[in-house]
Amino acid sequence: MHKAEPLRVADRITAEALVAGVLGNMAALESLLAEEADHVRAGRLREGIAVSEPKAALAAAYMQGLEVAKANAVALKRFHPEGVERLRAAHRRFTAAVEANQTVLASARTVSEGLIKSLAEEIGRAQMPSGYGKQAPAPSPYGRGVRSGPLILSRNL
């Protein structure tokens, strides 16, 4: 198995194609990020999560395009300087879109964690009977000596 030769920009046509490819991936990824944020803001988490697979593929293609552009920075500047400026401007807008998306996802994660922690505390309080004497968890209805374990929170969302 041999490694593919990296793209080398040697003329204006190749430079334009590289810039167009990176800009296209960036625009598609920005659109997916906005869609994901809209779903999460509206509480449609399942739809928001469904975007993650195409988002990962587009992000990989975008990062690969950026690496090729960086490797060919001198040639891009020589053959297509206006394309380099378009890439810079688009990258600034894209960075802002990524930050907005990350803010929405962090807010949703914080709210979700707060809800789960509140639920776990309520479950814990419900297992402690009130009465006289030493406080002890209520016996489990599922068998002798077996109690429900703690509520587990997954941070992989």
Results as ranks from 00 to 15, higher is better:
Arg86Asn: 02
Arg86Pro: 00
Leu87Lys: 00
Arg88Thr: 12
Arg88Lys: 11
Arg88Val: 11
His91Ala: 09
Arg92Ile: 04
Phe94Gly: 03
Phe94Gln: 08
Thr95Ser: 08
Ala96Pro: 01
Ala96Gln: 05
Ala96Leu: 06
Ala97Thr: 09
Ala100Tyr: 03
Asn101Phe: 07
Gln102Pro: 07
Gln102Ile: 09
Thr103Arg: 13
Val104Lys: 02
Leu105Lys: 13
Leu105Met: 15
Ala106Trp: 10
Ala106Asn: 13
Ala108Asp: 03
Ala108Ser: 15
Arg109Glu: 12
Thr110Glu: 15
Val111Pro: 07
Val111Thr: 13
Val111Ser: 12
Ser112Arg: 15
Gly114Val: 01
Leu115Cys: 08
Leu115Met: 11
Ile116Met: 08
Ile116Ser: 04
Ile116Thr: 05
Lys117Thr: 14
Ser118Ile: 05
Leu119Thr: 15
Leu119Ile: 14
Ala120Ile: 08
Ala120Asp: 09
Ala120Gly: 09
Glu121Val: 05
Glu121Pro: 01
Glu121Cys: 03
Glu121Ala: 12
Glu122Met: 12
Glu122Thr: 14
Glu122Lys: 13
Ile123Tyr: 03
Ile123Thr: 01
Gly124Ser: 15
Arg125Cys: 08
Arg125Pro: 05
Arg125Leu: 12
Gln127Leu: 14
Gln127Asn: 11
Met128Ile: 10
Met128Ser: 12
Met128Gln: 13
Pro129Thr: 13
Ser130Asp: 15
Tyr132Gln: 15
Tyr132Met: 14
Ala136Ser: 05
Pro137Leu: 06
Pro137Lys: 09
Ala138Glu: 02
Ala138Ser: 03
Ala138Val: 00
Pro139Asn: 01
Ser140Thr: 09
Pro141Asn: 07
Tyr142Lys: 02
Gly143Trp: 00
Gly143Asp: 01
Arg144Gly: 03
Gly145Cys: 03
Gly145Lys: 07
Val146Met: 07
Arg147Ala: 06
